[in-house]
């Protein structure tokens, strides 16, 4: 295993992680809810009575780049994936997280911190599936298709 020291960012990643954990801790303690992005967003299809709360959370996510932008700390995402792959990947992420009842935040952060066996298994499965996919794309098929 070769470590990519050039791109390794332990301190910003730890700092960001602490903020993510803080948000999850606040959500369960103030709103009584588990901070799972896919479930908060996916619960809008179809909308129910708590739609305003879900949309407020989504609005907060959308406003985050604007907030960090004030401090010139928001780096736009750099995509090198072609459009077809993005569409397929988006459909898989949307459907898969709903079928599996959670994503990186719901299972990976909240579920594991509650020691939920379902979330520990789900996190292991999506990590392994992600690792296998990147292995196939980068090392078997070759260079990722760039648009």
């Amino acid at each position: 295993m070769k470590i990519d020291w050039l791109n390794f960012t332990p301190w910003p990643s730890l700092a960001g992680g602490l903020l993510i954990g803080l948000a999850a801790a606040l959500f369960i303690n103030l709103n009584g809810r588990v901070m799972g992005a896919s479930s908060v967003i996916g619960g809008l299809f179809p909308p129910r009575g708590d739609a305003p709360l879900r949309l407020s959370f989504v609005a907060g996510l959308l406003a985050a780049p604007l907030l960090l932008g004030l401090f010139r700390a928001a780096a736009p995402p750099v995509f090198e994936t072609n459009t077809l792959t993005l569409v397929v990947a988006g459909l898989l992420v949307g459907f898969g997280t709903r079928l599996g009842a959670g994503c990186t935040s719901g299972h990976g952060i909240c579920g594991i911190s509650r020691l939920s066996p379902r979330s520990i298994v789900a996190t292991a499965v999506f990590m392994i599936a992600g690792i296998a996919t990147v292995f196939l794309v980068r090392h078997i098929i070759g260079a990722p298709a760039a648009s």
Partner: peptide, 20 residues
């Protein structure tokens, strides 16, 4: 749970983006 997590993982590995 297993199928959903696997499908999500493939999409995550293809685009490098999760829901939030």
């Amino acid at each position: 749970l297993l199928a959903g997590a696997a499908i999500f993982g493939v999409g995550w590995g293809l685009a490098g983006v999760c829901p939030a």
